[in-house]
Design a binder for these strands. Structure first.
Length: 593
RNA sequence: GGGGACGUAGUUCAGUUGGUUAGAACGCUGCCCUGUCACGGCAGAGGUCGCGAGUUCGAGUCUCGUCGUCCCCGCCA
C-alpha cells in the first residue's frame, strides 16, 4: 500500500493504487503524492525517461484515482522528506492508469487549515479522506476490537438484542417506529438493552456483552449524539468489585490498542465525597479538589466578614493564574450571580479573596495553607452570606458544593492556558484521571412532580443496610450503583440489579408506582424475575466518548463517521425528511397541522 | 424551551464612522520551469456579502424578522 514502502524495498517492482493527494509539476519532471489510508508515496514522472507516461501524468488532478506501476528507488540524501514515513524512497513510474477522474472537491483532504463543519458534514466522504479522520476511525476500530477480544477472552458472549422493541416511557424520550401490521401501534428503538440483558442473565448466559447502538431522542451536545454506541455488559453472581475488574481490564486493553499503558485499579470515591470535594458526581481530577475552609475562621472573623458559619464553605484553587485584573474580578462577581440564577438553592457567593486578604490577612493566610495554594494560584472562597434567623435547608447546603463545582469547572476552562492541566503531558498517570464513583443515592426528589424518582433506574439494587429506610427516608438510601469517570467525562454507568420480585415491588412502591402501573409497563420483566433469577449486575460504557478522549478530540462528531448536527440532522443524506402520502397511509398515520 | 457566538469567492478570513469598481491567502484555469515535497514564477477566472423586509440620497456595515451551523443551560431514569 501507499504508506508502506521503505528503503529495503529498493529495486522492487510495485503497483500502487490510490488518490492523487498533491501534484508538483516542474515542467519536465512531475511529482505526484499518491495516497491511500496507509499513507502516501511520491511518484516520479520524468519526461526524459518516459515521455508518454509523463504526458499522461500532466493531466492528473487532485483526488483522481490512479494505478501506478513502477520501481522503488532510494532517494538521494538531499531529497529525503523526513515528514512522511515513506520519505526515503520514491517510485519511478513505468505505467500509469487513470481509474477515475474527480470533480474539484469543495475542500482538499490535503488541506491544512480548519474547514467549516457544515461543509465537512455535507461532503463527509471527502472529509473522511483527511488524515485525522482516517486515524480516528482506525483508532475506533482498534479500540472496539481490543475490547471485544478482551471480553471474549474472559468468557463473555456477544449476544444481539432487538432494535425494534417496546416503548417504556421513563427517562429519555424514545425514537418510535410505527407498525404497519398494527396500525396505531409503535415499536421503540432501545435507549439501552437494559431489560434484555437482564433477561439474558435469567436465561443463564452468565456473561454477556454487546457493542451496540443506542438511541435517545433528546437535545444534542458536543458529547451527546441521538444514536451512539455502548459497550454493554452484564454478569451473574457479581460483587461490584468484579464489575470494576472486568471494566478495568478491557479499558486497559483499549488504551493499549492506542499505545497507552494504563495503570489499574482506578481510584474509588463515594458519591458523597465527590460532591463534597468536587461539587459534581463526575469529578475532573486533573485539577485540585475544593477544600473545606471552615477551620480558617474564628467566630469573630465570621461575624466581621458577615459570613454564615453554619453553611458549608469551600475554596476553589486554580493553579498558576497569577494576579487577576479588575475586569476579571467583575467576571467573578457575574459568575457568582449566574450560579445563584442557575440553582435557586444556592445561598452563597464567590467571595473576593483579594479583599479578604486586605481585611483579614490572617484568615486569608490560613485559607492559602488549607488549600495548599502557591502565591500564583487563584483562590476563590465560596461562603454563605449571613442572614439572621434563617435556617438553611439540606438542599441549600448541597448547592454550596454543586455551585462551587460549577464555578470550579468554569474557572478551570477559563484559565486553561495558565494552569495547563488539560494539556497532554505524555505522563499517563497525569493525562488520564480515571475513577469509580460509588454509592450513588437510590432516589432523587423531583420538585416539579413532587415525588421520588430513581436516580439510576428502577432495577438498581439498594444497599443491604439501607433496605429499612426505603419508606421512612428514601433520600438517604444508597444504591449499589457506580460510574466510571475519566477527566470529568462520565464514561459509563452501572449497578447491581434487583433479582428478587419482592424487593422490586418495594422499589416501585417507593417510586409511587402502583402494582398495575408497574405491570403495564414492565409486566414481561416482572414475570421473568419470578422464575429463578440469579443475582446479577453490569455496566455500559460509551465507546464514542472513550475514542473521543483517546483521539484528543472535543466532539463526538470527530470519531463518528456519519454524525448528526445539533438539530439532529444528517447533512449528507439530508435526514429526516417528510415521507409520501402512500407510506403514511400504509402506516395509518396522519400528520397534524 | 432559554442564553450566547457565527454566516462575505470553492476554502480560511479581512472589510475603518454607512460612501467610488468588495479585498488577501490558499485552491482553481492557462503558460513557463528537471529534484520538488505547503515547489516556484507570470497571467487569469471566480461574489445574490445566508434569505426577506425596514431606516437612508446611499447598507457587506445600522434595525427587525427569518433560516442554518456551533457552544452552553434546561433535558439526557
Amino acid at each position: 500500500m501507499c504508506g508502506e514502502l521503505r528503503p529495503e524495498h529498493t529495486g522492487s517492482q510495485v503497483v500502487l493504487l490510490g488518490w492523487v493527494n498533491r501534484r508538483r509539476d516542474l515542467g519536465n519532471v512531475i511529482f505526484i503524492d499518491i495516497r491511500d489510508r496507509s499513507g502516501m508515496t511520491q511518484l516520479v514522472f520524468d519526461k526524459g525517461v518516459n515521455p508518454a507516461v509523463h504526458e499522461k501524468a500532466s493531466a492528473l488532478r487532485s483526488e483522481y484515482v490512479i494505478a501506478a506501476i513502477g520501481k522503488v528507488r532510494r532517494r538521494d540524501a538531499d531529497t529525503v522528506n523526513k515528514n512522511i514515513a515513506t520519505g526515503e524512497v520514491e517510485v519511478t513510474v513505468d505505467e500509469l492508469k487513470l481509474l477515475n477522474e474527480s470533480k474539484l472537491p469543495p475542500f482538499l483532504p490535503s488541506e491544512a487549515g480548519p474547514i467549516n463543519e457544515e461543509v465537512r458534514l455535507k461532503y463527509r466522504y471527502i472529509d473522511l479522506r483527511r488524515e485525522n479522520m482516517q486515524a480516528n476511525i482506525q483508532l475506533r476500530h482498534n479500540v472496539a476490537l481490543a475490547i471485544r477480544q478482551d471480553l471474549a477472552g474472559r468468557g463473555f458472549l456477544e449476544i444481539e438484542t432487538p432494535f425494534m422493541t417496546r416503548s417504556t416511557p421513563e427517562g429519555a424520550r424514545d425514537y418510535l417506529v410505527p407498525s404497519r401490521v398494527h396500525p396505531g401501534e409503535f415499536y421503540a428503538l432501545p435507549q439501552s438493552p437494559q431489560l434484555f440483558k437482564q433477561i439474558l442473565m435469567i436465561s443463564g448466559f452468565d456473561k454477556y456483552f454487546q457493542i451496540v447502538r443506542c438511541f435517545r431522542d433528546e437535545d444534542l451536545r458536543a458529547d451527546r449524539q441521538p444514536e451512539f454506541t455502548q459497550i454493554d455488559l452484564e454478569m451473574s453472581f457479581p460483587q461490584p468489585d468484579r464489575v470494576y475488574e472486568v471494566v478495568e481490564s478491557f479499558l486497559k486493553a483499549a488504551f493499549k490498542a492506542a499505545g497507552i499503558d494504563l495503570p489499574t485499579p482506578f481510584v474509588r470515591m463515594s458519591y458523597d465525597q465527590a460532591i463534597r470535594e468536587y461539587g459534581i458526581d463526575k469529578p475532573d481530577m486533573r485539577l485540585p479538589a475544593m477544600t473545606n475552609i471552615r477551620p480558617a475562621f474564628t467566630d469573630e472573623d465570621l461575624a466581621d466578614l458577615r459570613i454564615d458559619g453554619t453553611m458549608n464553605m469551600v475554596a476553589i484553587r486554580i493553579p498558576n493564574v497569577g494576579k487577576i485584573s479588575d475586569r476579571e474580578k467583575k467576571e467573578l462577581r457575574a459568575l457568582s450571580e449566574e450560579l445563584a440564577k442557575r440553582n435557586k438553592d444556592f445561598a452563597g457567593v464567590l467571595y473576593d479573596f483579594a479583599q479578604m486578604e486586605k481585611k483579614r490577612p490572617q484568615v486569608a493566610a490560613k485559607i492559602r495553607v488549607l488549600c495548599k495554594a502557591g502565591t500564583d494560584d487563584l483562590v476563590v472562597p465560596i461562603v454563605g452570606i449571613a442572614a439572621d434567623g434563617k435556617t438553611r435547608s439540606a438542599a441549600s447546603q448541597k448547592a454550596q458544593y454543586t455551585s462551587g463545582g460549577e464555578a470550579r469547572l468554569e474557572l478551570a476552562r477559563k484559565y486553561a492556558d495558565k494552569h495547563k492541566a488539560f494539556e497532554r503531558t505524555g505522563d499517563v498517570a497525569r493525562d488520564f484521571k480515571f475513577l469509580w464513583v460509588t454509592d450513588f443515592p437510590m432516589f432523587e426528589y423531583d420538585d416539579k412532580e413532587n415525588r421520588w424518582n430513581a436516580a439510576h433506574h428502577p432495577f438498581t439494587s439498594p444497599h443491604e443496610q439501607d433496605m429499612d429506610k426505603l419508606q421512612s427516608d428514601p433520600g438517604s438510601v444508597r444504591a449499589l450503583a457506580y460510574d466510571v469517570v475519566l477527566n470529568g467525562t462520565e464514561l459509563g454507568s452501572g449497578s447491581i440489579r434487583i433479582h428478587r420480585q419482592d424487593i422490586q415491588r418495594q422499589i416501585f412502591t417507593a417510586l409511587g408506582m402502583t402494582d398495575d402501573e408497574a405491570r403495564s409497563r414492565f409486566g414481561f420483566f416482572l414475570d421473568a424475575l419470578e422464575y429463578g433469577t440469579p443475582p446479577h449486575g453490569g455496566i455500559a460504557l460509551g465507546l464514542d466518548r472513550i475514542v473521543m478522549i483517546l483521539a484528543g478530540e472535543d466532539s463526538l462528531r470527530e470519531v463518528i463517521p456519519f454524525p448528526k448536527t445539533a438539530k439532529a440532522i444528517d447533512m449528507m443524506v439530508d435526514a429526516p425528511t417528510p415521507v409520501n402520502e402512500t407510506q403514511l397511509k400504509d402506516l395509518g398515520i396522519k400528520i397534524r397541522g
